[in-house]
Write a protein that binds this DNA or RNA. Structure first.
Lengths: 348, 348
DNA sequence: TTCTGGTTTGCAATCGATTGCAGCCTAAGA
DNA sequence: TCTTAGGCTGCAATCGATTGCAAACCAGAA
């Protein structure tokens, strides 16, 4: 069943059928009615592939995320899908699993499938394929992580500020031995968080021993390993800033295994909020990002480009410190402040 | 840049270019080499749309999930995407947000896009569109929830057993006043869980007051409301079985708001495990499902169909009881007396 | 009746790859 | 030298919709 069949049945041309469906106002009312009825009756559904080939437009946006199970990215996907759907687009999803090569495969696939645009959370892919997108003038939005390509629409968090917020919070509580579990060096957001951490400590004249900075890969397991190493140091930190929520889960696992009490013996602060962080025992102090808003903005930016608009190039969102109960003054301070009365933790 | 351009450059026909790429063994080695080199050099990427139109195959599988942010579904998506990718398929994702109408829109879209197959977690859509799939012989796999269509490949959990496991656990702890927050009646998995719950209680000769069964919609907010109602009953339950993890989050919220201590004053058992359930305070006792395995199986079943194999029609996975610390024997005070008026909010 | 202008409709090319069929070319065998 | 078989290649149709252009049609004006 296609336009030819319908056209034959109705004694009209395929052109008329096509027009009746896509620009009803230009066909005679009587004809239009006949066509639409026939379409209804036969349960005909348009072949989108043929249409895409002819119109050179798939109305599909490709999204490459680093790890779909990470609630951060699933919220992103949800937001993007929402915006896409209400604008008549669909979403082709690719999972890079924090691996640049997978990401390249995904880009290749999206190009072949002729997607209208791409939203892209870099896992560190080579820039060549991204350049191919540009050459084909397929709009691209970097989300959460900057690929390093020049002249690209970008939606990010102010990561440096976020890290500064976290670090400052620890300093204000009186911590001096502050460690960080950072993300991989080749990702822009990880680097920025590390910079924010370092700068804040430096400006407070606090020294950071080399061993206090661990590099993970943003995945759970690496957080666990990093935490184990920090905890086995001769002079372990009194507070740890973990650069994303997956690694936080791993770190927490290691910490519980060793029976270390949070926040009494160790303060923990995470990056990016997640449901489990709120429900966790204790509820985690984190730097939160407006995840859905970021996904939505990325999609809107992309759709804007597709409409030919020239919008802002880079949108930077603000992180927010959410104080819960995984951070407290280091234990000596706790003892001293007992006299003054009970310390109150604010609920995030 | 397309086959015509390439062909002209090389003084061959488009047919030869096509064959050099898709069935290299049937073109002369010298020609093949020339073509492949030209492809490399020019950075040509196949137009998948044109290919799809001609071959009548998109190598795309559509997946409709009820709520992508639910970790259960994001794990499913991840598993499906993995299997799809390693078999040269891509994944078009649609979010139904637990609403049958959205689901219908999604089905429509997937049909238009000519997907090769569909994996489908019903949110209660009308069966007509699913029948269209069958008529077009687009393979379909029902996952997690049975749509009610006859002769459909299905991957589900033994939901009744799962609910029985949960209920029995509560009974064994000595609970007599057991309530349930169920999912919506029109979803097969919700119904099965309710049946498992009822049967288990009945066979233990325990009566279930009408008010002890609340119906939510599998989303967080409804769990909260349901819990509030249960807690405000003249004779509130001493244990609650919550039929999915989203509603559990809501219920937990309500319970904490009222300062009720779990499991001391109220035992809680959930359905489907999630990271936050493990980290929660207290860690939640749940019935867990092998989520990834289910997603993987669904994808494999679908790909099998696409290869023309005739496989098992229905695969049923086994749930498992994971006992953590949100369930305990009912305490005497709760057993004997109604809840006292005002309780101090506990920080836990 | 003829002409004009606007509305509807149809013809046929087009998007870019795939593929059945036929023809060419070469090398081996007669 | 002439067949013949088999390996390569090209022609042209095809997938199913869209669209520029031109033709047909109709009503009203001259």
């Amino acid at each position: 069943m296609n336009f030819s069949d319908l056209a034959r049945q109705l004694n009209v041309s395929t052109a008329t059928v096509s027009r009746a469906l896509s620009r009803p106002e230009i066909v005679a009312p009587a004809t239009r009615k006949r066509v639409l009825e026939a379409v209804q009756r036969s349960g005909y559904q348009m072949n989108g592939i043929a249409r895409s080939l002819r119109t050179q437009s798939t109305r599909t946006i490709g999204i490459i995320v680093s790890d779909i199970r990470n609630p951060f990215f699933s919220a992103i996907v949800k937001a993007v899908e929402d915006v896409a759907r209400t604008n008549g687009y669909s979403v082709l999803i690719c999972n890079a699993d924090e691996d640049g090569r997978n990401e390249e495969v995904a880009l290749h696939l999206l190009i072949e499938r002729q997607v209208s645009g791409v939203i892209h959370c870099s896992a560190g892919a080579n820039l060549d394929l991204l350049r191919v997108l540009q050459k084909k003038s397929i709009p691209l939005v970097d989300l959460d992580r900057q690929s390093g390509l020049e002249d690209v629409d970008t939606v990010i968090l102010d990561n440096q500020l976020g890290a500064a917020l976290a670090t400052r919070h620890l300093l204000e509580l009186g911590h001096k031995r502050v460690a960080m579990i950072s993300g991989p060096k080749h990702l822009s957001n990880a680097r920025k968080r590390l910079v924010g951490f370092r700068k804040t400590l430096r400006s407070a004249q606090i020294d950071i021993p080399k061993q206090y900075i661990e590099f993970g890969d943003f995945r759970e397991r690496s957080g666990q390993i990093a935490a184990e190493r920090l905890l086995s140091l001769p002079a372990p930190p009194s507070a740890v800033f973990v650069a994303n929520n997956e690694m936080m889960a791993g770190a927490l696992f290691a910490i519980r295994e060793q029976g270390i009490k949070v926040p009494h013996e160790l303060s923990l602060i995470g990056f990016d909020d997640a449901r489990w962080a709120q429900y966790s025992d204790p509820p985690l102090t984190v730097v939160s990002q407006p995840t859905e808003a970021m996904g939505q903005k990325a999609a809107e930016l992309l759709l804007g480009r597709l409409r030919g608009e020239r919008l802002a190039n880079t949108v930077v969102f603000e992180p927010q410190l959410v104080v819960r109960r995984s951070t407290a003054a280091p234990s000596e301070e706790v003892k001293n402040s007992r006299r003054r009365g009970c310390k109150k933790a604010s609920m995030g």
